[in-house]
């Protein structure tokens, strides 16, 4: 369907340090950064996080055509959100920072410096992690993910469910296309211009066989896994478990330091917000 779902790491990404990072490192970095970035409103800190994320992006050597579509979509999505934030409450920035320096206009829609600064922070929150995720998306071998998840403490059954989902994505895509075509061949109308109701009806007509075939798949796969003793022990090992390399330690330590700084800033700023207007 598109290239993000294709499995293998691209040619130009081989031998990059970001490709060599283990799955476990990537999950830890991604989780911790996205959580601290969600909470913190310290502008400088968010900028530092963005720079950190760009380092990964740099290493991945992605081609413009690989990321173009996604970047456009993110830009549109972010712009829409920022506009909504502004339209609904143009004075929100002033509320947050406790002052009001009008830049332009007056009345309800008066644009303040505070609002602008707040929107800048929002923007950073929307985009700071994008480069990192793009880099990981194109440099991670999916087989490492489950082993990595299990290693950082997820129960192995949940980790394996995630592995199975990656295993089944291509199958489901293929089934879905085949089912939809087989339904058309039976006489189901698929014109593009159908109304909402018809589209819903049509989707169900395709979803129902998908339900049957996936329930079948679940039943048979369960049997296949039981026959090979899945879930009979408290513990499980992973063929794809990887040894941490120097680069992993380096990245993990830097991330740890960044997180510590982020937490420290809550004290320095006296809260989540960095307020330049005081």
């Amino acid at each position: 369907m598109n290239q993000q779902i294709s499995y293998d790491v691209g040619k130009s990404q081989e031998n990059r340090w970001v490709t060599r990072l283990t799955g476990m490192t990537k999950i830890l970095v991604l989780l911790s950064l996205s959580i601290i970035g969600m909470v913190s409103y310290d502008t400088w800190y968010l900028i530092v996080l963005t720079v950190f994320a760009v380092l990964f992006y740099q290493s991945a050597h992605l081609k413009w055509h690989q990321v173009r579509g996604l970047l456009y979509a993110i830009a549109a999505f972010t712009a829409l959100n920022l506009i909504l934030v502004y339209l609904f409450n143009p004075a929100y920035g002033s509320q947050v920072y406790g002052s009001s320096h009008i830049l332009i206009g007056r009345g309800f829609f008066a644009l303040t410096w505070e609002e602008l600064f707040y929107l800048l922070n929002m923007l950073l929150k929307y985009v700071f992690i994008v480069p990192l995720i793009l880099a990981f998306l194109f440099t991670t071998n999916p087989s490492e993910l489950a082993a990595g998840m299990s290693r950082i403490g997820f129960p192995y059954k949940i980790s394996y469910a995630v592995e199975l989902s990656l295993r089944y994505i291509p199958d489901v895509i293929r089934d879905f296309k085949q089912i939809s075509l087989a339904q058309q061949a039976r006489g189901l109308e698929m014109s593009k211009k159908a109304g909402l109701w018809n589209r819903l009806k049509r989707s169900t007509q395709i979803l129902i066989p998908l339900v049957f075939s996936s329930m079948d798949k679940i039943e048979i796969t369960t049997r296949a896994m039981k026959l090979r003793r899945f879930g009979t022990k408290q513990r499980r090992t992973w063929y794809m478990t990887q040894k941490l390399g120097k680069i992993d330690y380096l990245v993990l330590v830097s991330t740890g330091l960044l997180i510590a700084v982020g937490i420290g800033l809550f004290w320095v700023d006296g809260g989540r917000f960095y307020n330049p207007f005081k």
Binding site: A161, L164, S214, T221
Partner: peptide
Amino acid sequence: GLSVEAVVATGVGIAI
């Protein structure tokens, strides 16, 4: 924890 069937249902479910 989860039964084997629940694990498989979760995996297939996430994909769909």
